[in-house]
Design a protein around this nucleic acid. Structure first.
Lengths: 231, 231
DNA sequence: AAGTGGTCTAGACCACTTG
DNA sequence: AAGTGGTCTAGACCACTTG
C-alpha cells in the first residue's frame, strides 16, 4: 500500500485532518451525525489506526468533532459565542460552528472626514481611509453589522477584490501582510431602529458590540473594526 | 514487570499524569527546567512510550508542560491568576480604570437543586453547591450582578471569609488552590425589571452577560460564574 | 452479540537541537 | 554523533452503547 494521494513534506495525520475539515465544512458530514468509524477511515486512507486517531484528536480539540465511546464520533453542532482573545475572523468562527458565512456589502468608499478612525489608525490628516460596511450572515440569517476602516495602502489592496464575500485576512495574507496582535473591546448596547431593520430584530434588543484595533507585524495599526452582533 | 504501584480502575496514563502534576506542584520539577526524557519515564514507570506520551500530552494541553522537539520537555512557569491576560478579575479591571471596586453580598448559601450548575461543575447529585450572589460597584456605582457557584469543598473555604469584599482567587491561592484555565462565553441581553432595579438602570437596557467556567490544575471545574454588567 | 471508541504494548524511522 | 521528541505501523484487549 502506497499513499500516493499524500505529499511527503507534511505529516500524514495533518493532511488527513485537512481532508476531514473539508468534509465537515462542505457539508458531506452533517452536524450531529456520526462520521465513518475509525475502521472505515483506516481502509479509506490506507493508514494505521494511530494516524486516523491523531487526525481526529486535533478536530476534537478544536471542537469540530466529539467522540462518544461505544457509539462513534459525531460532528459537533454550532456552539454559541466562542472564545475571546483569539484573533479569528468572522468567517472562520461561523464555519467552525458548521454554518456557512456570507456577507452583503452595503458600501465601500474612501473618506477623509473620519476623525476618530484617523486617530485610531494613526494616519495623517487628509489621508483617505477606506470604510467598508457589510451585513454578515450565518447561513441566511443576518447576525452582525460590520464597519471596518483601513489605511489607504491596505484599502487599495482590498478594493481590488469583491468585498461582498471577501475574507479580509486571507486577501492580506496573500500579499504578505500579516496580523500581529489586536485589542478588542466588548460592550452591550440596544439596537437602534436602523440596526434592528438590517438585522431583522426589534429595536432595543441587546446587541454585542465588538471594537477591534489590529496591528500588523510592523506594529502599525492596520484595521479598526466595529461589529455589532446579535446574541 | 508488573505495575503494582497502579490501581486497576483508572487508566495508566491518567495515574501517571497525576504523579507528574504532583512533581510540578511540589517543586520536584522546577519551572523552565527539563523534565526527565520519555525514555527515563518509560523505565521509571515500566510502561510503554505511548502511555508516557499520553500522560504528557494532557499536561501540555493544560499548559503545565511544553515540548521542544529535539530538546526535551520543560515545565512551564506557573500561570497564576494574575498573569493570565484574559482572566482578569472584576476588581483588577476596575482598578485599572482608576476606580475603587466594591461589592455587596446579596446571599451565600449551599443549595442542592441547581441542576445546570451541578452539570457544569461535574459534581454528583445531591452534592451541595455554594451559590453566591453579589452586586459589584465601581466606586459607588453599581455596575454588575455576579452569581457564582462553587463545589462544596471550595465553598467551605470561601464561607470562612467575609464575602462582601472577598476576592475569590486570592482566598483560594492562599489555600494552594490555583486556577488553571477558564472558558468564557459572552452574550448581550436586555435587563429584566429586577436586574434593572439592582443596577439602577432602566428595564430593557442592554447588559453584557459573561459566563465563565474555570478549571483547577487537576482539570476539575472549580467555579461557574455568570456576571451581568452594564457598559 | 456485535460494533464502537479507549487504552496499551513493542517496535521502527524521522526531524530537530545540541555538544 | 548522540539524544530528543514527532510520526507511524500492527496488533491486542477493554469499556461502553446499541439492537
Amino acid at each position: 500500500m502506497s499513499n500516493e494521494q499524500f505529499t511527503k513534506g507534511e505529516a500524514l495525520y495533518l493532511q488527513i485532518k485537512d481532508i476531514l475539515i473539508d468534509r465537515i465544512q462542505n457539508g458531506s458530514w452533517k452536524a450531529n451525525e456520526l462520521i465513518p468509524t475509525e475502521q472505515e477511515l483506516i481502509k479509506e486512507f490506507g493508514v494505521s489506526r494511530t494516524t486516523i486517531r491523531q487526525a481526529i484528536t486535533v478536530l476534537v480539540q478544536n471542537g469540530l468533532l466529539e467522540k462518544k465511546q461505544g457509539r462513534g464520533t459525531v460532528v459537533k453542532p454550532q456552539q454559541l459565542v466562542g472564545n475571546l482573545g483569539q484573533l479569528k475572523g468572522f468567517a472562520e468562527e461561523v464555519m467552525e460552528r458548521g454554518s456557512v458565512p456570507r456577507s452583503k456589502l452595503i458600501r465601500a468608499e474612501f473618506k477623509t472626514n473620519l476623525y476618530h478612525e484617523r486617530e485610531m489608525l494613526q494616519v495623517p490628516e487628509d489621508a483617505p481611509i477606506l470604510l467598508i460596511e457589510r451585513i454578515r450572515f450565518s447561513d441566511d440569517t443576518p447576525v452582525a453589522l460590520e464597519r471596518s476602516c483601513w489605511p489607504e495602502e491596505i484599502g487599495q489592496l482590498l478594493m481590488k477584490h469583491d468585498l461582498n464575500e471577501a475574507k479580509y485576512y486571507e486577501i492580506l495574507e496573500n500579499d504578505q501582510i500579516y496580523l500581529n496582535r489586536a485589542n478588542e473591546r466588548i460592550a452591550a448596547m440596544n439596537a437602534t431602529i436602523d440596526e434592528a431593520d438590517l438585522l431583522a430584530i426589534r429595536p432595543g434588543e441587546a446587541l454585542l458590540e465588538m471594537t477591534r484595533l489590529s496591528y500588523g507585524l510592523n506594529d502599525h495599526p492596520m484595521e479598526y473594526t466595529r461589529e455589532k452582533s446579535i446574541r
